[in-house]
Design a protein around this nucleic acid. Sequence first.
RNA 1: GUCCUAGUAGCUCAGGGGAUAGAGCGACGGCCUCCUAAGCCGUAGGUCGCAGGUUCGAUUCCUGCCUGGGACGCCA
Length: 554
Amino acid sequence: MKQVVIEALQTASPLPIEPHMVERPLHSEMGDYALPCFSMAKTLRKSPKLIAEEIAASVSHPAIQKAEAVNGYVNLFLERPAVAEPLLHSILAEGAAYGTSTLGADGVVTIDMSSPNIAKPFSMGHLRSTVIGNSIALLLEKSGYRPVKINYIGDWGTQFGKLLTAYRKWGSQEEVEKSPIKTLLQLYIRFHEEAEADASLNDEGRAAFKALEDGEPDALALWKWFKEESLNEFQRIYDLLGVTFDSYNGEAYYNDKMEPVVEALDHKGLLIESDGALVVDLGEEMPPCLIKKSDGATLYATRDLAAATDRKSTYQFVQSIYIVGNEQSLHFQQLKHVLNQMGCDWAQDITHIPFGMILKDGKKMSTRKGKIVLLEEVLEEAIELAQRNIEAKNPSLENKEEVAKAVGVGAILFSDLKQHRKHDIEFDLEKMLQTEGETGPYLQYSCARAHSVLRKANGRGEEGISEVNDYEWDIITQLQQFPEAVRRATVEWDPSIIARYAIDLAQAFNSFYGNIHILSDAANQSFRLALVQCVSIVLEESMRLLGMQAPQEM
RNA sequence: GUCCUAGUAGCUCAGGGGAUAGAGCGACGGCCUCCUAAGCCGUAGGUCGCAGGUUCGAUUCCUGCCUGGGACGCCA
């Protein structure tokens, strides 16, 4: 559409019109598009006001209804039916495929996401990584990429040495079997409490991890058991969220793949000994990257290097992205630098997509101190609330449980996805459970209303478009922007663009719905029903891209 | 101390080189004999952290400062 506007303006402008010069006006009374003429004033040696008047006077195009010059702006009003008709036609024809593109040219993008740690609860922080990663995967797919979702399970590292030590000292098999993650977490917390008084515990933990890494059978058996129990618990949450993975290769998967990386680093003369540990020096601007501890055990960075190279050879990705909290940005910078020094030209295709932390009382939540909010409890509460709402508002609904699940989970998902700036979020259960205003349930409710109208309309309606009122026009302009919203959300790796888009569309629809009674008014009825149909298509597709369900009734 | 990130309405946040800076929540006032009131309509509320600079024009770009959060070798 913008292209048409540019062409139309070009016929009337003495200077070339660049796409960035055309903007959307502040308010709808000012038209649909605007051209500020200030930048042309210098070269044309005329006042912006005069330039605008001259352009406005000579613009002529079938898609332009009128052009006005105001304060140095050319404001353009589109011919509404001429825009609406082909747009609705193409959305109805394409259905859910509206907004699909071939931008990605079938390139593979690996997504490192979710990555909970075994023997630890699934926290609100993991939720962010999971739902953002899942939505980015859906967006990539819609834009013609081939996403590969990798759950890089945290199943290795010194923490397991600590856990083994704690279990052997204080744990019991029955308790772990009864409630695995809860019990293991308590052991972990106790370890850190006691280690504050007795620092030798930390050495003991490190030694236990070294034994685990060396393949000591008893340690290995315990580790395997902890892992199985944990994965079972995580699966319940993934089922609820509707998230699946293409790979569960966690950190332990790379145990036998690290040595070649270390050797390659050594070969290139990049490894330096420092206080007994092996590091790669990264120059002045960055601290060195630790590859091996002084006891010979590996570190996070070692495994990530192995994982990155393994993913490159397995998937031949065009991009490899990591949905990980912004407190790890230094780690990813180091990772890229080390790969660069190793001569991997694809290091530039690695992108860390950081997100803010979820804070409690303005502070980072710490697993070690047991200050943590459990996602599963939050989800359960949200579903219960949805259930109560259904009982109160629509008790005759047929599949109540299913809908309550969709709405409860939708509320939590959306509250997280609608804002994805990098800054931190204060944990606020009440806000996450909101069902009014800019929320997931609001989107679902809007969509359910649209379906309800369509069900009752039964193909009624007899006229075509004669005129498009302001309510309808708001919806049309929103619908028109969907492909661009998908494109931006994809290239910026940012689901919140879709979330906000969906809110804008739903608001436009509800305003229309609240002010115009579609079924009792014969005027433009088939056009209006087509419009409602298009809203339901695009709203549902937006929710799908966010990983949300859209119940037909609620 | 160094680096990263943010500072917009009472609260949570959008936006972004240009015309009167927008939503939601909360507050206040309307609207269900009518398509789902999880909704709609209206009112109140902002010197866009502070100071300079670039520009015809800065809340937006640059620099400095202040404040919050984070990271900074044997955690991940």
